[in-house]
Amino acid sequence: MSVLVEFSMFPTDKGESVSAYVSRIIRMIDESGIPYQLTSMGTVFETETIEEALEIIKKAYKELEPDCNRVYSVVKFDIRKGKENRLVQKIKSIETKLGREVSK
């Protein structure tokens, strides 16, 4: 099974620039070893189960909880049985249909 998650999470009580806080979350995801893609508006990651995905979201919040009084988050899930590596495969599919050479 493939669980794709797109989410953003950041404190709303720390001023305009929150990259220092978001970086803590990205470091945790990176250290977890799961595949992910950082974008300018959020992060997409892939796990094999919904439980693993929810655990990452929980850990992300735990990164901010100690020193953030208000945290905003948006989370989207795309869950598909019998598939894997969709973080890469979905993009390859579109690129192929556009006639672009796909690396990886």
Results as ranks from 00 to 15, higher is better:
V3S: 00
L4Q: 08
L4P: 03
V5Q: 01
V5K: 00
E6F: 08
E6H: 10
E6Y: 05
E6I: 03
E6G: 10
E6R: 08
F7C: 09
F7M: 14
F7Y: 11
F7H: 04
F7E: 01
S8H: 06
S8Y: 07
S8T: 14
M9F: 05
M9N: 02
M9P: 00
M9Q: 03
F10Q: 03
F10S: 06
F10L: 15
F10P: 01
P11I: 04
T12K: 10
T12I: 15
T12L: 15
D13Y: 08
D13Q: 06
D13S: 07
D13G: 09
K14I: 08
K14W: 04
G15H: 11
G15K: 06
G15W: 10
G15M: 10
G15T: 12
E16Y: 11
S17Y: 08
S17N: 15
S17M: 12
S17K: 15
S17W: 07
V18H: 00
V18S: 00
V18L: 01
V18C: 07
V18E: 02
S19N: 12
A20W: 04
A20Y: 07
A20Q: 14
Y21G: 04
Y21K: 02
Y21T: 01
V22T: 06
S23C: 10
S23R: 09
R24F: 07
R24G: 09
R24S: 06
I25Q: 00
I26G: 01
I26W: 03
R27I: 11
R27G: 02
R27M: 11
M28E: 03
M28P: 02
M28V: 04
M28R: 10
D30I: 04
D30H: 14
D30S: 13
D30G: 06
E31S: 10
E31C: 04
E31N: 12
E31G: 04
S32F: 01
S32T: 04
S32G: 07
S32K: 09
S32C: 06
G33A: 05
G33P: 01
G33Q: 05
I34G: 01
I34C: 11
I34M: 14
I34V: 15
Y36E: 07
Y36R: 10
Q37F: 13
Q37A: 15
T39F: 02
T39W: 00
T39Y: 07
T39I: 06
T39M: 13
S40Q: 08
S40E: 07
S40R: 13
M41Q: 10
M41N: 11
M41R: 11
